Amino acid sequence: MDPKRKMKVDGLINNYKAILVIQGFRQKEGTDFFDTYAPIARISTIRLMLALAAIHNLVIRQMDVKTAFLNGDLDDKIYIKQPEGFVMPGNEHNVYKLKKSLYGLKKAPKQWHQKFDDVVLSNGFALNQADK
Rank of each mutant, 00 (worst) to 15 (best):
A68H: 00
L121N: 03
K132E: 14
Y103V: 05
P109I: 02
Q82G: 00
L58P: 02
R26V: 06
Q23W: 09
H93M: 13
F116V: 11
V120I: 13
V119R: 08
A54E: 11
L48G: 02
N128F: 12
T67Q: 11
F34T: 09
T45E: 00
A18D: 06
Q62A: 05
L50A: 10
M49V: 08
N91F: 05
G11M: 06
N14Q: 15
G124N: 06
N123Y: 14
L127S: 10
S44V: 02
I13E: 12
T36P: 02
D35E: 12
P3A: 09
K77L: 15
V95H: 03
I46C: 06
H113F: 12
A38R: 15
K28Y: 03
E84L: 04
Y79L: 12
A41G: 00
F125K: 07
I60N: 04
K110C: 09
G85D: 00
F86Q: 02
W112N: 02
G85S: 03
D32R: 03
I43G: 01
L48A: 07
A108T: 00
R42K: 12
V119I: 15
N14V: 01
E29H: 06
D76M: 10
I46T: 03
K106F: 10
A51D: 15
L102F: 13
M63H: 11
M88N: 09
L12V: 09
T67V: 11
K66E: 08
T67D: 06
T67E: 06
L121Y: 04
A108W: 02
A68S: 03
V9R: 13
L121W: 03
Q129K: 15
T36G: 05
A18T: 15
K132W: 14
V21D: 12
A51R: 14
G24H: 05
A41R: 01
L105S: 10
Y96E: 04
A38W: 06
P83Q: 01
K77W: 08
V59H: 09
D2H: 14
A126N: 15
Q129R: 15
G24E: 07
V9P: 10
K77S: 14
E92Q: 11
K110E: 10
K81D: 04
E29L: 04
A41Y: 03
L70W: 01
L121S: 05
K97W: 04
L48C: 07
N57M: 03
A38E: 07
K66Q: 09
A41H: 02
Q27F: 01
L102S: 10
A51K: 13
F33W: 09
D73E: 12
I80R: 00
G72K: 10
D131T: 02
T36K: 13
P109W: 05
Y79R: 10
H113L: 07
A41C: 07
S101I: 12
G11D: 04
K115R: 14
I13W: 01
Y96Q: 02
A18Q: 08
I13G: 00
A38C: 08
I43Q: 05
L52V: 13
K8E: 11
D35V: 08
D75C: 08
T67I: 10
Q82A: 00
T45Y: 04
Q27L: 03
A126V: 13
I22D: 04
A53N: 08
V95F: 06
D75S: 07
G104D: 08
L12G: 15
N71E: 06
I19K: 13
L20W: 12
L105N: 14
I22A: 11
A51T: 14
D32S: 04
G85L: 00
F34E: 09
D10F: 05
I55M: 10
N71P: 04
F125L: 15
